[in-house]
Design a protein around this nucleic acid. Structure first.
Lengths: 238, 238
DNA sequence: CTGCGGGTGAGAATCACATTATCGTTTTCG
DNA sequence: CGAAAACGATAATGTGATTCTCACCCGCAG
């Protein structure tokens, strides 16, 4: 029962024991626990991978538990052994997505030199990540289309879990905002965490969905991400 | 089959025949059609009312088709006679909500005198409308909690229908933006429809959901609506 | 009057999914 | 080794939405 929650992501490397147990007693415990953990993580990974493939797979939309177990070669029994239900699977998937995205964004912003440039880079790349992959192979594993719905459900229905899942992203963005403020390139006195939330939300849903204001032939100036960014920094005033 | 789509709202008065048929033939047709139409609209209204009550009713969340027909005193058969399915019902409900909201917002902004004030008023009041009613009676019929999810599904899954449903709101806001631009109180050269979409989206989801960036004790400066508005006009730059 | 067709109510039937339960079998661990 | 846990396969249950069946009622053309 406790396994599922703890195993929601196998991300931080496989070496759960790598951070050195302190006593022989703990070592012994670890020796017996680790194989079990490893097995569990393998299975969990199988499920997550299968689900992930299904999400940006053919239909590009939702998936059933059946499909997941078929594609993963595991059994239904096993699935419910590891996850409290479909919801938990989605949550785990989502966490993974957020973590991956955060990592990629950290890389991306490393290329920029000034705080404001890093903010800019963050916004633009985050927008891209949130956009449904343009129908090519080897997609970079951003959020998939199905995630939009889930993210929304999470935000409206479980604010607790939602903000928790977003922590990596908000932390990163909050850092960037703080740096920019210290640098004098953004207005002081903003509540960075809150502003970070607003920005993330705005960018994400703008990328996910076609904007509410119709879907013209995107004829104009072009890059929607850039436009949104301009709006975010300058506001609508002159 | 065509009835449902056309009857999604009984708003524009009941007098469908008031615009005078031209020939006796048409009159005859109307004589037989009108009662039918009237009956249909009555029924549709019954369903919509029931659904609406359920939405901000006790549980405040989702509802089943069963519940709708029980509360409306109609039959399941009849339900599917008038609506293509639950989805259509939700859509109709949503359209109604948008229309009502638009009407209320028009009233609200009438109290402001300058274009920029009207924009401000719009943003603030729209935010309020989108917020789940604070547990009091006589709520003003904004969007209910369940709408958040639906709005999102609509936006991500059916951009077409979504932007159509939002038309009244985007039109209003676009007008306001244009007026403000003409007035010189906002930056020129913005694509108003698109900006309107962004604003609506940002405000709506910020009001609907707790913001991504945690839910602190909202201790700070206070009014979240006002804060968001400040962010929208000034951006994050100094 | 009379029977016919469309709209209707009541409810059973069907479908799609998620979630649980059952039952041998295998693996693991003390 | 023997009990406990995990597993696979598969059937069962439960909840909703959607569809189907049957009988009825009502206006009207013959």
């Amino acid at each position: 029962m406790t396994v599922e929650k703890g195993a929601t992501g196998g991300r931080s490397g496989r070496g759960a024991s790598s951070r050195g147990p302190v006593s022989r007693r703990e070592l012994a415990v670890a020796r017996v626990l680790d194989p079990a953990r490893e097995r569990a993580e393998t299975k969990v990974k199988a499920f997550l991978d299968a689900a992930h493939e299904l999400l940006n797979g053919d239909s590009g939309e939702e998936f059933t538990v059946q499909e997941v177990i078929e594609r993963s070669g595991q059994s239904l029994r096993s699935f419910y052994q590891h996850f409290d239900g479909k919801y938990e699977l989605l949550l785990a998937l989502f966490e993974d997505g957020v973590n991956t995205a955060t990592r990629q964004l950290r890389e991306a912003i490393a290329e920029a030199s000034t705080p404001i440039d890093r903010l800019h880079r963050f916004a633009i790349d985050y927008f891209r990540l949130c956009q449904p992959p343009p129908r090519t192979r080897t997609q970079k594993r951003g959020f998939a289309p199905g995630f939009a719905t889930f993210a929304q459900q999470l935000l409206t229905g479980h604010p607790q879990e939602a903000s928790h899942a977003f922590v990596p992203l908000t932390e990163l963005l909050t850092e960037l905002l703080a740096a920019a403020e210290a640098d004098g390139s953004i207005r002081p006195g903003l509540e960075h965490p809150r502003v970070a939330g607003v920005i993330l939300q705005a960018v994400m849903f703008n990328a996910f969905a076609a904007t509410i204001g119709g879907v013209p032939v995107q004829s104009n100036s072009g890059d929607p991400a850039e436009e949104l960014w301009q709006l975010l920094i300058h506001g609508i005033q002159p």
